[in-house]
Nucleic acid binder design. Structure first.
Lengths: 234, 234
DNA sequence: CGACCGATTGAAGGTCGTCAAACTACGTGG
DNA sequence: CCACGTAGTTTGACGACCTTCAATCGGTCG
């Protein structure tokens, strides 16, 4: 049903035909007439695993929509340690802070092969100024990001190491619609959960031994969801 | 300079004269003509310490601007434990999620005697729909909240207990412009930092013994900022 | 004065961090 | 083809830090 809307929005404007996908939702509320405001090209851009979409502090001119793959948003502590503050999945936006004249607040790194739409800032700004239909979408994105951030704090930075790992896995499970669940490197797990690489490894190894986590390839696995849910603590 | 703008905005509209303050910044960009859109009263509302502004899940019709005092935003874990995800200070907004049709995402509780402006949702919605000048302000609020959320994660949920406490105190120090710093109850400190009440107490007591924290009244103290900064780890 | 609440302190135990080594997978080069 | 190097994972041992449970202290309020 949502797809229908999006399809309708994307079927029209020839400016975006080269974009080729229909699940980009930032513009899902736009109407035909709005698309004439898009005067600069929106480009498809791919990133390989571990490639950087942008660096914290950079101030270039593009916002990204994630179309495929997962992206981690990293922040660095004074002591050089890194903390992963969020994961972006299909449909999420990266670099929204540019809209407010801020430089990028994180470093965005591809966890999987990633496909993005790179949208010139001026396009979003123009649309944001001229079509109220985009406002709601943009606010909704901010709100979503904030809800995510809050729940990372309450769910992923609270409790014992096994609980945190379990909650992270459940979260990743929701991202993977049916497909095998993405399993981060132990180092990344640590940076997401505020624990060390070794602890992350010990916990995941134990899950494997118990048969709750069956590795399929180095970065994907099958999960025993009910059991994991039990560990997560509800 | 900013004050001048705000004064200008607030001097005009008689609808808001009863509001009486000038440091409310959500409407700082509005012009005289925008204020005719305010058709419902904005009320001053006070809350005593430990009083609740609103509960998570409620869906009433008011957004709050904090004019004086500190407010904690609390979320609850499945096991009943609570985690404080943010602190609101003067000028911050509470309940913005209502704009998107969401129920309140947190429980908001006054840490100090709090003075708010209670703004009917319909007023913000009306203004949001009709004046682009408010959009930037609203987005800016979202962005600010998100930056706060991210830094709670990287600063307050990472490192040893003394580091976390030190970083929290520094943060609270920035809130108190010149005045003595607000010191949370040990239980609240724990809920903010992801540590237990006892650990929070031990660390704070030690800071007192070392003379870095001099209690003035039960909830305020003087800090040795350079020393605290050293503990925080940079 | 006595009850109560929050802060503090103590003791014991467990979890997690640290340091270090072994193991695995993978790709390169001999 | 196999040896070797590298990077990531796993495991072990030990110790530090933090949690847990419990008791004490101090102040406030009825």
């Amino acid at each position: 049903m949502l797809n229908a809307q999006i399809q309708a929005a994307w079927a029209g404007p020839p400016q975006c035909e080269h974009c080729g996908i229909r699940d980009l939702v930032l513009f899902s509320d736009l109407r035909q007439e709005d698309f004439v405001l898009i005067h600069k090209p929106i480009e498809e851009k791919r990133f390989a695993i571990a490639e950087t979409l942008y660096h914290e502090g950079d101030a270039p001119q593009h916002v990204f929509t994630i179309r495929e793959g997962l992206v981690k948003l990293v922040q660095y502590l004074p002591d050089g340690k890194q903390r992963i503050v969020r994961i972006l999945k299909q449909g999420d936006l990266a670099g929204l802070e540019l809209l407010l004249g801020q430089p990028y607040q994180h470093t965005a790194i591809a966890l999987e092969p990633v496909l993005t739409c790179r949208i010139p800032l001026s396009v979003v700004q123009r649309l944001s100024d001229d079509t109220p239909r985009l406002h709601r979408q943009l606010m909704s994105r901010w709100q979503r990001a904030l809800t995510e951030a809050d729940s990372w704090l309450t769910e992923l930075s609270t409790g014992t190491a096994p609980q945190r790992v379990a909650r992270l896995l459940l979260r990743l499970h929701e991202f993977s619609r049916g497909k095998p669940v993405y399993i981060p490197s132990r180092e990344d797990m640590g940076a997401m959960l505020g624990i060390t690489t070794e602890t992350a490894s010990r916990v995941t190894a134990e899950l494997k031994r118990e048969g709750l986590l069956s590795q399929i390839d180095p970065h994907h696995a099958q999960l025993d969801i009910p059991a994991v849910r039990a560990i997560a603590g509800r």
